[in-house]
Design a protein around this nucleic acid. Sequence first.
RNA 1: GGCCGCUUAGCUCAACGGUAGAGCGCUUCGUUUACAUCGAAGAUGUUGGGGGUUCAAAUCCCUCAGCGGCCACCA
Length: 699
Amino acid sequence: MESKYIPIQFEQKLSSFWESKGFFKSVVDGKKKPFSIILPPPNANADLHLGHAMMVYEDIMIRYHKLLGENTSWVYGTDHAGIETQFVFERHLQKEGKSRFDFDRGTLFQMIFDFVMKNQNNMKEQLKKLGFGLDFEMNKFPMDPAIVAIVYKTFKKLFDEGLTYRAKKLVNYCISCGTSFSDYEVNYEEREGTLWYIKYPFAKGQGSITVATTRPETMLGDTAIAVHPNDKRYKKYIGQTVIVPLIGREISIIADNFVDPKFGTGAVKVTPAHDHTDWETGQRHKLTSIQVVGFDGKMTKEAGIYEGLSISKAREAILLSLKEKGLLVEEKKHMHRVGRCYRCKRVIEPLPKEQWFISIKPLASVAIEAVKKEEVIIYPKRFKKELIRILDNFIDWNISRQIVWGIRIPAYFCKSKATWFVSEKKPEKCQVCGDGDFIQDTDTFDTWFSSGQWPFVTLMTSGDEMYKQFYPTSVMETGHDILRAWIARMLMLGMYVTGKVPFKTVFLHGLVRDKHGQKMSKSKGNVINPLEVIKTYGADVLRASLVFETKEGSDVVLTDEKLIGMRNFGNKLWNVGRFIHMNKGESKTEAKTGNKEIKKLLKEFEGVKKRYHTNMQKYKFGQVMGDMHAFIWHRLADFYIEQLKEELKNGNMEVQNGLEKVYLECVTMLHPFIPFETEAIWQEFKGHEASVLEERFLI
RNA sequence: GGCCGCUUAGCUCAACGGUAGAGCGCUUCGUUUACAUCGAAGAUGUUGGGGGUUCAAAUCCCUCAGCGGCCACCA
C-alpha cells in the first residue's frame, strides 16, 4: 500500500471494475430475498446537482442489502420532465433567435427529443462518478414505446371506469409558457398591490354599492355582486340588480357565506372566469362566466372597446375611465398573494378551459387506507400525518398540458356526435359513430401522470419475472419536498393499476443548506457543485459529508470544514490499513495466544456491529457513520493500535490477525457509505480482482 | 388563520428517560519512518424562558418566545 492517500485515483478505475463485473445488473433469483429501489428519475436536461447527490442514501441501502446477501435491483431511468425540458430547450432556441412557434409540432418534438438524448448520457456518467450502484442497463425513459403503452392503458382504464372526465374549469394558465399548470405548480408570493374601491350604480333608483378589488380589468366579466347573508348593511339589497360600469351589463346582488364582511366594503364583485373563488361561487349560484382575458394575455371581444389591449394597458384605461366618471372612490395599498409560474415567474392567470381531470377521491381513499394500515411505512414518521392530510385534501387533478414535449393524450373527438373516446392504439375509424371524422387531442399529459406510474411501468417493461420479483419495491427514497407532487400520486396510481402499494417504505431526506442554514440557490451564489467537490476531494468525501451525523429527514449543512473532516477520516482509515498491512506476516516470535487487549477489542467490536445493523435497519444512516467514525478513529486506532503497536511489530500473529479481522470488517461495514476507498483497501488486502461486494455480512 | 419541525460548547450538528457528545475552532505538551499529519491532556454548556410528571428529564406533558417549512378562497 502506498503511503499517500489520494482517494480520487481509485474512483474512475473502480467504477469501471464494478461495471465489468456486472455487480449491479438486476437479475431474477427466486432463492434470494429481493430488495429494490427505483431511482427518482433525474431530468434529462441538466447537470448533476446536490439534490441528486442526496440519493446516496439509496446507494447505501442497495450496497448494504447486497452485503446482506439479498437480490438487489436499483432501477435507473431519466424523466422527460415535460414543461421543465421544453422550457430549457426554448431558452436554447431563444439564443439562436428562434421560438417554438417557428416549428410545427412534429419537428419541435423531434428537436427536443434529440436534445434530451444527447443530455441523457451526461447524467449517466455523472451519476457513475458518485459511485452509484445503479443498474444502468435498465435505462428507462417515459417515452419508451413500452412505457407509453402502459400509460395509455392506465388512462383508458380511468376513462372506462368513469374516473377521468373532461370539464371546463378554471386552470392556472401561464400566458408566457402557453400551458396550464396544476395548483401545486403555482408559487404564491406575498406582494404589495393596490385595492381599488369601485362604485356599481343600482339598476333601479338612486345610489350604488361599492366593491373592493385588486383586479379592476376583470370587472368587465363580472356576473354578480356577493355579500354575506347576515350583513345588515346589505341585507336589503340582496336580489336587486346593479349596472357594471363601462360595459353596462345588469347583474344581481347575491348572498354567499364565503364573503368576509370585515374585508374591504363587505361586498365583492364576482368574476367566475378569472378567479378561483368566484368560479366556485358561480357554480353554486349558476352564474354565467364571461371570459374577458384571453389565452394570449390580451382582452377578448367580450371586453368591448378594450379588446386587444394587454392586461396592464386595459387596467390603466379602465381605472382612468372610472376616475373620470367618479366611480373610483378609493385606492389603498394592500398586501396580497400573487400566483406565479414556477418556471418563468410570470403572473399566472386563472382562465376557464376544457381539460382532462382525474377524479381523485376514489384513488385517494384507497391510498389513505394503505398509509393508515402501514402497508407503506414513512420515515421520518412525522411525514405520515402530512401524507394523509395531503391525500385527504387532494383535488381533482388536471392532467392536460398544452405543450408538445410530453406523452400525447390518446383521446379523440368525434365531430359528428361531439363526444370524446379514448383508444390505446391509434384508431382507424371513429369509435363513437364508426365514421372517420375525428381528431386527436393536441394536449400532452402532465409529467407527473407518467412519473406517478414510474415504479410499476419501469418494472413491467422489464419482463413479467422482474415485475414479480421486485414489485412492490422495497423503498422509495426522495426529498420531502415532493411528497405531494410525487409520492402521493405514485401511491394513488400504483394502487389503482396494480392493486398493491408501489413501495413498502418511503424514506425522505432533507435539503442541502450552506453554513448559514440558507437554501442553496444560484441567485444567492452559495451553490456547491458536486462535480467540483468530486474533483477536489473525491466522491467518497462528498457522500460521507452528506450523511455524517445528519439526522434522518433533516436538512444537511454542507461546508468546506465538513468536507475536510471527512477527507481526513478517509485518510485515517487508509493509514490504519496500511499500518496493519505493512507489519503483517513478519512473524519473528513464537505464536502467542491469550492477548488480553485483542480479546477486549473483539468483544467491544461485537457491540459495534450489533449497533450498526440495528441502526442501518432503522434508517439511521447518519448515526451509523458517526459510530463508525468514532470507533475506528478513537477506539481502534488511538486506543487499541497504540496499545498493541509493539506486539504488532514483533510479529504477534494473534494480534495481527485480530486487528486485521476487525479492520476489514469495519471496511465492509463502511462500504455502503464510502464505496471507492473501501473497495480499494479490500483489493490491497485481498488482491486486485477481489471485491468487498462479494463479502457477506454475518449477522 | 391551521398544522409540522427546530432552538444543546464560539460555529455546524449528534444523543431522545438513566453520570451532556462529535467535527471544526481554541490552550498546553509531545510526535515528525502508519497518518496531505497524528497523539496526549485541557477549557468552554444551570441542553431558549417558565411550569409539571418521574427515584431520575436535553429527552415525556403544558405554556411562552424566536426561527424555518407546509397548507388555506382574504376579493
